[in-house]
Computed example of a mutant assay.
Amino acid sequence: MKHVLLIDDDPTIRDLLSDYLSQHAFRVSAIGDSRSLAQIVATDIVDLVIVDLNLGPEDGLEIVRRLASTSDAPIIIISGDRLDEADKVIGLELGAVDYVTKPFGVRELLARVRVSLREKPALKKRRERKIYRFSDWELDIDARKLADASGGSTKLTTGEFRLLTAFLKAPQRILSREHLLTESRSHDDEVFDRSIDVLVLRLRRKLESDPSRPKIIRTERGAGYVLDTDVTVVDARRGRP
């Protein structure tokens, strides 16, 4: 079931869209502002985001920019009927893939949601096409895909992805919690020291054959953690190191 994150400060619209999308086999998280946004994106898989650009005191375009820089989820913006066309263009340039203008029909929005999930976003900023190979795993940075030796994929939350990337950039080096905290959060995340321990535990459950006796991510008491394995970086476009 695809997970849709809806950000709209109008409770009537939130309830209407949440109910309608839920009736069409989507799991919906609906919030009225960005205060809990970072926590949701860091701890759950979000497949698509719907953002109302008119969020009272908040800048909807800034939320679009932040989401586009930290998540691969397609973004659909909701604009007011009197919103300047320039704001729509800016929203698309910042990373949104589509928009609807109020008033709009729920069937139209549903169709746009399905199309956005089906098609690869043409305006999404492309990341480095790097693949990190380590132990019996490989992480495709551009696709955010973690695959095992047999090709089976394992989903990562945004927080898990950032943390694993931080480890892969510095293999066989002891990394402090403070360093991992900085590397694995966006600028406005409310992430605390012990959150790193929780993310490490979740990564171990996905990477280790025996998470209780980790061999890939080891704990260095009083110092932090270390990715205790060789890492090879491959250019995904060329298929070679």
Rank of each mutant, 00 (worst) to 15 (best):
L117D: 09
G105E: 10
K130E: 10
P57L: 10
H179F: 15
L6Q: 04
F192C: 07
D44N: 11
R114T: 13
T165V: 03
L201Q: 13
T12W: 02
V200S: 11
K120M: 10
R240W: 15
E128D: 10
A38P: 00
I90K: 09
L164C: 05
R205D: 10
E208L: 06
F167Y: 04
Y99C: 03
R114A: 09
S209C: 04
A236E: 11
S176V: 01
D197T: 12
I31S: 00
R144M: 13
D188Y: 11
A166M: 08
L175P: 00
E220D: 09
R126D: 03
I196C: 05
P74M: 06
K130Q: 08
G95D: 00
L175W: 00
A96L: 06
S184W: 14
T182R: 13
E85V: 11
A38R: 03
T182P: 00
R27W: 08
D72L: 15
A68I: 01
L175N: 09
P74D: 06
L110S: 02
R240P: 07
I141P: 00
V115P: 00
A147G: 08
P57K: 05
L17W: 06
T101K: 10
F26P: 02
R82C: 10
S195I: 02
R126Q: 12
V231K: 02
D59P: 10
